[in-house]
Design a protein around this nucleic acid. Sequence first.
DNA 1: GATACTGGTTACTGCAAAGAAACTGGGATA
DNA 2: TATCCCAGTTTCTTTGCAGTAACCAGTATC
Lengths: 122, 122
Amino acid sequence: MFDPMCPSGAMPFQIGDKWTGMVVLCLQDGPRRFTEIRVPLRAVTPKVLTQTLRAMERDGLVVRTAYPENPPRVEYELTELGRTLLTLIEAARAWSRDHLPALLRAREEWTKAAPIGQSGRP
Amino acid sequence: MFDPMCPSGAMPFQIGDKWTGMVVLCLQDGPRRFTEIRVPLRAVTPKVLTQTLRAMERDGLVVRTAYPENPPRVEYELTELGRTLLTLIEAARAWSRDHLPALLRAREEWTKAAPIGQSGRP
DNA sequence: GATACTGGTTACTGCAAAGAAACTGGGATA
DNA sequence: TATCCCAGTTTCTTTGCAGTAACCAGTATC
């Protein structure tokens, strides 16, 4: 899940910025803490994750709840609006299941077949 | 359509790179020439449009047909694979119809309410 | 001979997002 | 006293995308 080597990097869709869609999927089963979100997105730095979550909070997609404990605990949860994105993400994943192999096949044939002279390539 | 000032700039979805989705919509009613695609996307430069179309051709989303006439004529047409993106784009537009106002409202309230001190903003 | 048309290409520039790495704070634990 | 924990923040560097502007080939028209 969210492996940087997996072909979903070639998936031609994006929800919000680069990580928003994955955050939504991370939160679909209930609230999660900052570090719990970081684990499956193992490439993301805390700075970028903070930026993503702040933007989602601003847009009303998540709510942030800080508990005055220590060590500190902060939970993020999808709002109702944020949950509406799940159907769209599911549609994108369905497309990928059905058509991404064809796209990747086309891309592979492009690179291996006629490295030059292919309709005016350099 | 494709007005840079229209709020779809805030739409949190993207198909492929920045212009791919709009190109797909431009081509949904049949083949179009290079300059015909440029018109509705009035902000895009030929360099960027060429890049977009080459990437789509590489991924098997469009076919490029050059007619040896003059002045030269080149037509771009959606492939069957490219057409499958239309349902996804329609789903994204439906989401925007139903939920984008709420997102923009949340964003506006965020900026106007409590410019500082809002859960740790600078 | 000069200019325009189509469908690009090339070189250069600017900006914002992304990332790496180190640091913070304040209590808890060893 | 030193170290760890979480949830970040700060600073700096890199990367890549997008855009501007100029140029090109071949024909046709003025």
